[in-house]
Simulated scan of single mutants.
Amino acid sequence: MRLYFSFFVSLLFSLSAYAQIDTKTKSIAIPAVKSKKDSLDTNLLLPSKSTNSNTNINSVNTPRVSTNLNMPKKEFSMFPSEEFGNPGELYVDRINKSLDHLKLSEEELEMKNGSSTDQYFGDFKSKAKFVNVVYRDHGYVDGDVIQVLVNDDVIHARVFLTSGFKGFKLDLQKGFNKIDFLALNQGESGPNTAEFRVVDDLGNLVSANRWNLAKGVKATIIIVKE
């Protein structure tokens, strides 16, 4: 009998404890009352639009950058007629050529540009009645033209120099016979270049030489007949 009574008391105690726990976990939902206008204005959360075109950051006006800038299509140059891949290479070739002149000796400059002063190849004595005067372009045949004078008289007004010798027969007068070769141009590749020979009536070589002349400069030789 006491055993049943104890079981019954324990059962009542368990049911009471479960009822208390279940009561705590359950809640009563209270419906929210919707007001006509929400007390919190959502517009306050949005950044205000600036009326100025510039952005103000810490009282410093930042200019507005335009995305529609018209960029120049071609770089400005003080030399519009020439184009260079690198602006630092303006007229490099011309400067280098000018510097090359500083590295050359006077003789090398004369060979490159031609003598700017008249050349005298000396005077030679001869007992011959006449001499043959011949000349040719000793360099690249590039259109060199000369004028030939004897005692300041024009013998040949224009002679086109070729790779082969050509010339004239000169009857020697008693005393001085001055022969001038005047460079009328410098051809296409530098100075007026030529080789000349003077041979007497017996086939003996009286004189031979070469010249490198600038335009307007002359080379002179004198044959003295004894």
Rank of each mutant, 00 (worst) to 15 (best):
F121N: 07
E107L: 14
Q186R: 11
Q173H: 08
I30S: 09
F196A: 04
E195Y: 06
K36L: 06
V133W: 05
L202V: 07
R197N: 12
L45D: 10
M1I: 09
A128L: 13
E107M: 05
L3W: 08
S116C: 02
T42D: 08
H101R: 15
D100E: 15
K97W: 06
L213T: 10
H156R: 10
K215Q: 13
T23W: 01
T51R: 00
V60C: 01
N52P: 03
K215T: 15
N192Q: 11
Q147Y: 00
N58G: 04
A19C: 01
D152I: 07
H101A: 15
E82R: 01
I146Y: 05
S53I: 09
F165D: 01
I223L: 13
R210K: 11
V206H: 02
W211F: 14
E89H: 12
F160M: 13
E106V: 14
F13M: 05
K169T: 10
V131Q: 02
S59R: 06
F8D: 01
L15K: 00
K169G: 00
F84N: 03
V133Y: 13
T23R: 09
G85P: 00
L102N: 12
K112R: 15
L12S: 06
N96M: 12
K97T: 05
S39T: 06
S98G: 02
S35A: 14
V60A: 02
D180P: 03
P31C: 07
G122M: 11
L69H: 10
P191R: 09
T67C: 04
N86S: 11
N61S: 06
I57N: 05
D41G: 08
S6I: 05
A29T: 09
N52K: 08
V133D: 07
F84Y: 13
K215W: 08
D38G: 10
F8Y: 09
A128V: 13
R136G: 13
D41C: 03
M71I: 14
N113P: 04
E107Y: 03
K129Q: 15
N151E: 10
S27W: 01
A183W: 03
I21R: 09
K37F: 00
T220G: 03
N185I: 11
P63Q: 01
P87G: 04
N56V: 15
F7H: 02
N192A: 08
A17S: 14
L12K: 07
R136T: 12
F124M: 00
K49G: 00
L149Q: 15
M71N: 04
P72L: 12
E107A: 15
Q186G: 10
V134H: 04
L3Y: 12
N132M: 13
S48E: 07
V131F: 05
T220H: 01
K24M: 10
Y4F: 13
I221Y: 03
A32H: 09
Q186M: 14
I21N: 11
S35L: 14
E195H: 08
W211K: 00
M78Q: 07
N209T: 06
K37E: 10
V33Q: 10
S10V: 06
N43H: 07
V92E: 12
P47W: 02
D142L: 13
S6T: 05
F160I: 11
V154G: 01
E188H: 09
T162W: 02
K178H: 03
E82V: 12
F196Q: 04
L46R: 00
V199G: 04
N113V: 03
